[in-house]
């Protein structure tokens, strides 16, 4: 079992090898590099765990919505600005991740803290290191692949895909 430890960098993500990826995301703010990182996260066939901390913009929401499991530190504060929300496609990504009502609660907030992120379900409670160890196994990777396909398939199409995944 190996865990790749990276920062919010598309280049590091491309080179990441192992059974799972642990991402440190302190003070994440929008840039083309972050946008590229988030797009690549969404197609990575490996379990990913992110720990977001510090003063962030809405890019933090995109990172948390794109990983297998997201965590935040108690000091996190996410400011939610429309420009970043739109640039990262969060008006579709967050409702898909959380449901429409909870997503709107986040999207219309000026800022969200750790309590709010955990309460809406975007961030997990508990320990990220434990989570990444739990996810660094082949069966978790299969679930990640299945989830990725299910997000863009009908239930029947997703079941047919799952039936072909290696046991």
């Amino acid at each position: 079992m190996t865990v790749a430890r990276i920062s919010v960098s598309a280049q590091e993500l491309r080179a990441a090898e192992g059974d799972a990826v642990l991402i440190a995301a302190p003070g994440v703010r929008y840039s083309p590099e972050v946008a590229s990182f988030v797009r690549r996260l969404a197609s990575l066939p490996l379990p990913t765990v992110a720990v977001v901390s510090g003063q962030c913009d809405a890019s933090a929401l995109a990172v948390l919505a794109s990983v297998s499991l997201g965590f935040v530190t108690d000091d996190v504060v996410v400011s939610v600005d429309a420009r970043t929300v739109l640039a990262l496609g969060l008006t579709s990504a967050l409702p898909a991740a959380l449901g429409g009502t909870r997503a709107r609660g986040l999207l219309f907030a000026e800022s969200v803290d750790a309590t709010g992120l955990r309460a809406c379900g975007l961030a997990q409670s508990g320990d990220a290191e434990d989570a990444v160890k739990r996810l660094a196994r082949p069966s978790a990777a299969l679930v990640v692949r299945s989830l990725r396909v299910a997000a863009r398939s009908t239930p029947d199409q997703a079941r047919l895909y799952d039936a072909e995944l290696p046991a």
Binding site: S153, Q157, L160, Y161, E164, P166
Partner: peptide, 22 residues
Amino acid sequence: AFEARELGLVHRIVPAERLVPA
């Protein structure tokens, strides 16, 4: 593959390692 399926080109999507058997 997913958009191609929506457009009608792809009949079925499978994991790459099971492509030929499927």
